Amino acid sequence: MLDKMAQKVVEKYQNSSCQQLAEEKSRPPTAQKAQMEQRAVEMLRNDAGMRAEFLNRVAAPIANKLFECGMIP
């Protein structure tokens, strides 16, 4: 499950344009998406090992994309 979740996040950032990411950030999440995100965050909060592995997999691709898009200094 961790593999699938991390891969989905990485693919989202790799396959999205900067404009798509900015638009998504400005829109409120749907109820279903908010609920899924809440469950995932809760799972990561409760399992430090899983959280560390997840962040190790997704942090660099996310940070690189946000930097390329000028969304972080």
Rank of each mutant, 00 (worst) to 15 (best):
F67Y: 05
A59I: 11
P61S: 03
F54G: 03
E24V: 12
I62F: 02
Q14T: 05
Y13H: 01
Y13D: 00
Y13K: 01
K8R: 10
V41P: 04
E37L: 08
E11R: 09
K65V: 02
I62V: 12
P28F: 11
Q20V: 02
A31Y: 01
F54M: 13
N15V: 05
P28V: 05
Q32G: 00
S17E: 08
M43G: 06
L44M: 15
Q20M: 11
Q35C: 08
M50W: 05
R57G: 01
L44F: 06
L55A: 12
Q20C: 02
A52I: 02
R51P: 08
N64Q: 06
M5L: 12
A31Q: 13
E23I: 00
A6M: 12
Q14E: 13
Q7Y: 05
V10M: 01
E53K: 11
R57N: 13
T30V: 00
K12E: 14
A22D: 10
A59K: 09
K33N: 07
N64F: 00
R27I: 03
P28D: 09
E42D: 06
A52D: 06
K12T: 14
A48M: 15
S26D: 14
Q38P: 01
M50E: 04
L21T: 07
Q38C: 03
K12I: 14
S17K: 03
M43P: 10
Q32F: 04
G49L: 14
N64T: 00
P29F: 07
Y13R: 05
D3A: 07
T30L: 02
A22K: 15
L2G: 14
L66W: 02
E53G: 12
R39A: 08
S16L: 07
R39G: 10
R39K: 09
L21W: 10
A59E: 07
A22I: 13
I62G: 09
V10G: 00
R51W: 07
K33F: 10
E23F: 04
M5S: 09
K12F: 10
Q14S: 08
A60N: 10
Q19Y: 03
R57V: 13
D3K: 06
P29H: 07
Q7D: 13
K33M: 15
L44C: 09
E23G: 01
Q35I: 02
N64S: 02
L2M: 05
E53L: 09
K4G: 06
E11T: 10
G49T: 02
K12W: 13
S16Y: 10
K33Q: 14
V58L: 05
V10N: 01
I62K: 04
C18E: 00
A48V: 08
A59F: 08
I62A: 04
A59P: 05
V9M: 07
A40T: 09
A6T: 14
L2W: 01
R39D: 06
N46S: 06
E11W: 02
K65I: 04
K65T: 03
G49H: 03
K65Q: 15
R57T: 13
F67N: 06
K33T: 13
A34R: 15
Q35Y: 08
A6K: 09
Y13A: 01
E53I: 06
S16I: 10
A59G: 09
D3C: 10
A22E: 14
E37K: 08
K33V: 14
A48Q: 12
N46W: 06
Q32C: 00
R45G: 07
A48G: 09
V9H: 03
